[in-house]
Design a protein around this nucleic acid. Structure first.
Lengths: 212, 212
DNA sequence: CAACTTATCGACCAGGGTGGTCAATTTGCT
DNA sequence: AGCAAATTGACCACCCTGGTCGATAAGTTG
């Protein structure tokens, strides 16, 4: 990436980055089209290659960017003093939503890039970052959590997994529902009912998986 | 589709159909390549167009085929006498596995085709079929189920959804795990440990969501 | 204003993939 | 042998690809 890209208005930067995130997520590296990214972001093709010299260097920039976003907008904001499991889930979910509002596909892109990390040869520096991030991600729902509140007739590990899967399954269904409603952007959408619904389910899960 | 396709050996038919299912699922209609399908299925490109005259007619044939598979290999085999919810889940999951062994991507393709049903203009006949199928699918986990066994402090509907999401979330994680292990085919893989693990979780869910 | 740098663009390139065709060949059957 | 059905891949016109580059436009400086 040339330094020119960092000189343009932040809003434009984010528009381009987000467009590129989407394109790479949905099509994969090979099938992703620089033409399409440029058009979708509302800039000329030449401009895109003026900012990033090649498709690959754009991709590498995106990886770094996604890492930074995940780190600064998500991981660093988690309050690890929250010992209650459900409170932690609620909190991390809210953080994810906040990230989503600004960079809708950043976290999905990061997951995608990590999954295909073997094909995409990362720099040594990035490989290190990856290891670090993986460790942190693993701790998001476990570090400093008070598991003693869980009911005792079920292994803590099992309960932990079941809850994770429930939340994830619910999230996926919500995503599908929204796609069907053609929520291309979530802008100006009132999401509060969805939040409320989610919190309701969390409360139910708490009565189920905690000691009474 | 010409009648020639139905004259060739069944094994070859299935190989072609399965290859096409995969290609369309993974790339979508536009991006799917007939070249690639032919090569992957081990037949000449000319042969593919000898069987199905156009890409579109191949696609329509696949929809019909997927419908038939879902109907005959899955829906029709469900035992609706089974009143226990978890027993029903176990049974339908097993059926899905069986279908998966023979037509690995058929059900995923069907879901994909239904989701993009608006873009893909279906024939009137198919639209009717779709409505019918949708009704049947909705009943798979509800029809003739004895919900009185569920604990009473949680709305039946909520419990029902939570369990569905748990199972679905678990399934997704399993799928991801398998992809990472490069299970390209499930052939010759010993899946019993996975079955057992799944049944174990089902038992736990039963203790959680049923009256004691 | 001129002079100069930086930003932006889209026509253009060679290369490769597309859905689809078809003459040539192989296969199977009587 | 002789015929019909099955199979093939070279070939077609077309479109899209990542990337280049000369022509502008915008901004900045004197």
């Amino acid at each position: 990436m040339s330094e020119a890209f960092e000189r343009i208005p932040l809003e434009k930067q984010e528009r381009i980055v987000n467009t590129a995130f989407v394109e790479f997520c949905e099509k994969g590296y090979e099938q992703a089209s620089t033409n399409h990214i440029a058009k979708e972001a509302g800039i000329g093709k030449g401009t895109l290659f003026y900012y990033f010299n090649t498709k690959q260097s754009l991709f590498h920039y995106l990886i770094e960017k996604a890492f930074t976003i995940a780190q600064e907008e998500y991981l660093n904001k988690i309050n690890f003093e929250t010992k209650d499991f459900f409170e932690r889930i609620k909190q991390t979910t809210e953080l994810k939503w906040e990230v989503y509002e600004r960079y809708p596909y950043a976290l999905k892109f990061l997951a995608f890039a990590m999954m295909h990390a073997e094909e995409t040869d990362l720099s040594d520096e990035l490989s290190v970052k990856r290891k670090e991030a993986e460790a942190k991600w693993a701790g998001v729902l476990t570090q400093n959590i008070d598991f003693s509140k869980f009911r005792e007739d079920i292994p803590k590990e099992t309960a932990f997994n079941l809850i994770r899967w429930t939340v994830e399954g619910y999230r996926q269904e919500l995503e599908a529902r929204m796609k069907q409603l053609q929520f291309e952007t979530m802008e100006n959408q009132d999401l509060r009912p969805y939040y409320e619904e989610f919190y309701g389910y969390l409360e139910t899960l708490k009565t189920i998986y905690y000691n009474e």
